[in-house]
Design a protein around this nucleic acid. Structure first.
Lengths: 212, 212
DNA sequence: TAATGATGTAGACACTGTCTACTTTCTTGA
DNA sequence: TCAAGAAAGTAGACAGTGTCTACATCATTA
């Protein structure tokens, strides 16, 4: 009974397929992903991955699930203070950091049509978890406010923040951006300024800055 | 010499390929686009389109170019008043209208990796034109202000507005959205509220609303 | 009128996902 | 212990794709 039992090997193959698939995605993008290439890199027959995944969509869904998980983990592992607005700001910063550090993986999660969500509940569960972090960040901020209306707006604000962050991340990765004739420096300052504006819109800053 | 000369037919085929391609994209998305399917629908051999386009990327670039053109045309044909802030608001509204009315075509322009821009200058020219409309809308607003700093921020503000609008459009088309447990109604009100917030952030509204 | 270039056809190649059939390997229960 | 059976991997086939090449057709024009 060596360590390399058939079962453990096969379980490794399943995980290896996902890992190798994610590597391909990170290098060349989702469009360049093929199960045959995965099998080739792992040195197995082109049908081996199909013993562990029903279809290309299923391996893709697992890759998306793991991406959401590591994305959420990255958001969670930032230093946490007891200041809700600061923590929310740090989460926004972390969001953009992840998007810029792993552009193709980010595109996998948020920029390509996902396999039918109803067929891949595990994938969606992980997505809900990631979004839940943002909801909680917003809720914490609202909770420390006197304003009773704020709480009712939690989902709305979460949606808005997500939308603003995603818009920024998506456009900064677009190839269109490089061909636009923009004032120099206006692109580089965008992430920081956008985070400021989001915070401002949520009323995180000193109201006196409002009119300036 | 009938009207149907070889030349005019071939020119039609070129245009027909793009039109049929756009039809496929609008129905099934870019991923489902294939030149052989286009040829099949047009009743020609699978190689006929290649007499008019060097590669799949070239036909795709032309489709993107036409999409940008019709997108820009849609933005331009909205009623124009002499009130710059109102006109800018109307453009934002038109932006979202187009995105929601033609989701797959919108994805073609802003949601899929474009063919190498340097190889397709006509495509990028049309993209610049579309973005130029937004820049002009912002510049007009800044121009009617006393604030001299505002003008220097034109590109920055244009970038921000584009980013916010795109983020909203992209997320509202995401399949993830339907599986999130959000407060009912928070999604439906997003477009209008986002436009309000953008206007607010640009200072288009009465400053007295700022602290509310 | 003959040549030439543009346009369209046909076949082939390598690649993809997925179906089927076959072999090997490991587990497990009588 | 060993035979049965499940699990895992291999191999071949099929239809689909983009693109290369060779060939046919036809209009213009020198």
């Amino acid at each position: 009974m060596s360590e390399k039992t058939g079962r453990s090997q096969s379980r490794n193959l399943r995980e290896d397929c996902v890992a190798e698939g994610l590597r391909i995605v990170s290098e060349k993008g989702v469009e360049a992903l093929s199960l045959r290439e995965v099998a080739r890199r792992l040195g197995v027959s082109h049908q081996a991955p199909y013993k562990h995944f029903a279809s290309r969509d299923h391996i893709l869904a697992e890759m998306v699930r793991q991406s959401y998980a590591s994305f959420a983990q990255f958001l969670e592992q930032r230093p946490i203070t007891n200041n809700a607005p600061d923590d929310l700001g740090a989460m926004g910063k972390a969001y953009l950091e992840y998007a810029f550090a792993h552009p193709l993986q980010y595109r996998l999660m948020f920029g390509t049509p996902l396999p039918p969500p109803e067929n891949h509940p595990a994938m969606m569960e992980e997505a809900r978890h990631a979004f839940g972090l943002l909801q909680k960040g917003i809720a914490d901020v609202h909770a420390m406010r006197a304003d009773p209306q704020a709480e009712a707006r939690t989902d709305f604000d979460a949606f808005f923040v997500w939308s603003a962050l995603h818009g920024l991340a998506a456009i900064m990765q677009s190839s269109v951006l490089n061909t636009l004739d923009l004032a120099p420096g206006s692109v580089d300052r965008m992430p920081e300024e956008t985070l400021n504006r989001i915070g401002w819109m949520l009323g995180l800053d000193d109201p006196s800055e409002c009119a300036s």
